[in-house]
């Protein structure tokens, strides 16, 4: 009985974000914070020490009016498969205390707050800035402790945290599946808070190993190249580094797709630097 459940085919949960649909409203950020008990400061002026598991970046094509175009890029943790897609994510391989690991049955990169001792090496390793440090102990406005989710443990000062693809929702979905004596969970049973909160339906979440799932159909991941999208309109951030992220982006606009990676001048035509403002 035990063996049966563990023999179930490995999942590879991933996310596809349609940047042409994203309006930059920030609902995903808010939903994420309340779902995951993300602490906040009384004064959030300094964004570089605020915690935002899901962060929306704004970029432009750098052209002047009337050709200016804007695009918003929501950035959760990429849950990198790492070089060769073997689970040697940039952060997992460097953590000295095994406080973060790669789950081969789900493809999710964990972060264990009670194991982390706050050396911040993983933050240095992550090119996406998806990892955040708890510079302070969380202070909840009085009464707010009661609204915290019991499914996500709150963090203490001095540890690193990051997006978990709402893993507790996967656990809950699996519980239901066990109770109903089903082999596996369905696509709609496990959805992240950001995907559900997005009013523009720009965020799609599912199993990249399952060709029935929407995420698979949208990007057609190439298993022989660490899941690189075969769909030409899809791309991943910093593809060249070989981090093999599980978050994909889609855009019809070429300049947006170009902004996903760095190109050396001369080697790639139509190369342009796009800057945030």
């Amino acid at each position: 009985m035990i063996k049966k459940h563990n023999k179930a085919k490995a999942h590879k949960f991933g996310m596809v974000i349609d940047l042409d649909k994203c309006t930059g409203c920030g609902s995903c950020m808010v939903a994420c914070m309340s779902e995951n008990n993300v602490p906040f400061k009384e004064n959030e002026t300094n964004k570089k020490d605020s915690i935002t598991w899901m962060h929306v970046y704004r970029l432009t094509n750098g052209k002047s009016f009337p050709d200016t175009e804007i695009c918003y890029i929501p950035r959760p943790c990429m849950h990198c498969g790492g070089k060769g897609d073997h689970g040697h994510s940039p952060c997992v391989s460097v953590c000295p205390a095994t406080a973060t690991d790669y789950d081969y049955t789900t493809g999710i990169v964990s972060q264990i707050y009670t194991r982390c001792f706050g050396c911040r090496y993983c933050m240095a390793a992550c090119p996406y800035h998806a990892r955040y440090f708890n510079w302070w102990d969380p202070i909840w406005p009085s009464g707010m402790e009661k609204t915290l989710s019991p499914d996500v443990s709150p963090r203490m000062r001095g540890v690193v945290e990051k997006c978990s693809f709402c893993f507790h929702r996967y656990q809950a979905a699996k519980d239901t599946a066990y109770f109903e004596e089903r082999e596996d969970i369905t696509e709609d049973e496990y959805q992240t808070a950001c995907a559900q909160a997005c009013p523009a339906n720009a965020i799609v979440f599912g199993d990249l190993n399952n060709s029935e799932h929407e995420v698979y159909k949208l990007v057609k991941p190439d298993p022989y190249h660490g899941g690189r999208p075969k769909e030409p309109k899809a791309f991943r951030l910093l593809e060249r580094l070989g981090t093999n992220p599980k978050v994909y982006y889609i855009s019809e606009r070429e300049w947006v797709r170009k902004a996903g990676d760095n190109y050396v001048k001369g080697k790639e035509k139509d190369h342009k630097k796009h800057n945030t403002e």
Partner: peptide
């Protein structure tokens, strides 16, 4: 269990009998 622990009774009692 401590706050940081998730335990599924369903997985053990129903799943693994």
């Amino acid at each position: 269990q401590p706050d940081c622990v998730f335990f599924s009774h369903a997985a053990h009692v129903i799943g693994a009998n």
